[in-house]
Amino acid sequence: MTTTQDFPAMSGSLQEPAPFWRRRTGTVVTSAALVAALFGGVTGGVVGALNASGGGVAAVSSPVALNASSTSDVSTIAAKVLPSVVQVNVRSGQGEGLGSGVVLTPDGRILTNNHVVAGAQQVTVTLSDGRTVDAAVLGADASSDLAVVQASGVSGLTPAKFGDSDRVKIGDQVVAIGSPEGLQGTVTSGIVSALDRTVTVPGTSTGRRDSSVSYQAIQTDASINPGNSGGPLVNAAGEVVGINSAIYSPASDGGQAGSVGIGFAIPSDQVQQIVNRLS
């Protein structure tokens, strides 16, 4: 049985990247040092705390887990999962931003992070085939940082398959798929670095910081960047074992967070317990 692992003190911050906002007037200033924004465009985001270590968390992309290391294995997994990964586009009073999402049903029910859609006035979804359609938030749970949206007028989408996150092992290879910096369909690979990491980030329910959110996460070194939040973490069988939601960023005077090889995903077992009531 795995035990909960706490982070040692770090000089940077764990971040739950709020949407990567675009504004005509310029960049949206974040509330903390370095933020990995969830959306493609200009900087934006929310910084959280990493237990008592003084670190912070940024929500971002989602990784896909593999058991084999060859390029052919990665490409096979990517080909299988890409049709089930979408880009979630959001417009709010802050501007425009984007994140990632996972297809749940053929008729367009899509899973993403709550912080991707919190405070959204308008939501659209860009499918893997390039079509962009209107969408509406069906349900959101700020306490778990998960949300479900419904795309309008679609059918025949490819739902992702969910696996058992309890079977994930340290050292398993992973691949992240999402829209970092708005580059839809980007694939990166790495390994599962640790399990049961306690991650605590500031909550978002209406686009502002609320009470903190904590969960036991899968840690990975798969490259995760702004725009990846809400994407899938899948195993070698192409099953989703996590939803990427946060990254660690070194201390900085400001600017946009990028991957330093420490990312976190909400385990699929936790996700499945919540998704049904959000739908």
Rank of each mutant, 00 (worst) to 15 (best):
M1G: 12
T2K: 04
T3W: 11
T3N: 04
P8D: 02
S11T: 12
G12P: 09
L14A: 13
P17H: 12
R24E: 00
T27Q: 07
V28T: 05
T30E: 02
S31P: 06
A32I: 08
A33F: 13
L34T: 14
V35P: 10
A36H: 01
A36I: 06
A36R: 04
A37H: 01
A37Q: 09
A37T: 03
L38G: 14
F39N: 07
G41P: 03
V42S: 11
G45C: 11
V47T: 08
G48Y: 15
A49Y: 12
L50M: 13
N51E: 12
N51S: 13
S53K: 14
G55T: 09
G55F: 14
S61P: 10
V64Q: 06
L66S: 11
S69H: 12
S69V: 11
S70I: 10
T71D: 04
D73T: 12
V74F: 15
S75K: 15
I77F: 08
A78R: 01
A78Q: 00
Q87P: 03
V90N: 02
S92P: 10
Q94P: 04
G97I: 04
S100Q: 05
S100Y: 04
V102G: 08
V103S: 03
G108I: 11
R109Y: 14
V116W: 08
V116R: 06
V125F: 05
T126R: 15
S128C: 11
R131G: 14
R131T: 08
T132D: 01
A136I: 09
A136L: 09
V137F: 06
V137K: 00
L138M: 07
S144N: 13
L146D: 05
A147R: 00
V149G: 05
V149N: 02
Q150M: 07
S152L: 04
V154E: 02
S155F: 10
S155I: 10
S155R: 08
G156E: 04
T158Q: 12
P159N: 01
K161G: 15
K161P: 06
F162G: 00
G163W: 10
S165Y: 01
S165K: 01
S165A: 11
I170A: 06
G171N: 05
Q173C: 15
V175N: 09
A176M: 08
P180A: 05
E181D: 10
E181N: 09
E181Q: 11
G185W: 08
V187S: 11
T188L: 01
S193F: 08
A194L: 02
A194M: 04
T198I: 14
T198E: 07
P202R: 04
R209I: 15
S214R: 07
Y215T: 09
Q216E: 05
Q216H: 12
Q219G: 13
S223P: 10
I224R: 00
G227Y: 00
G227C: 02
N228S: 14
N228L: 04
S229G: 08
S229H: 01
S229T: 05
G230Y: 03
P232E: 07
L233Q: 02
V234H: 03
V234C: 14
A236G: 13
V240L: 01
V241Y: 02
S245G: 03
A246T: 06
Y248R: 05
S252E: 07
S252Y: 09
S252V: 07
G254I: 01
G255C: 10
G263P: 10
I266V: 14
I266F: 13
I266L: 13
P267V: 05
S268R: 06
S268G: 12
V271N: 03
V271H: 03
Q273I: 14
Q273N: 13
R277L: 13
S279I: 14
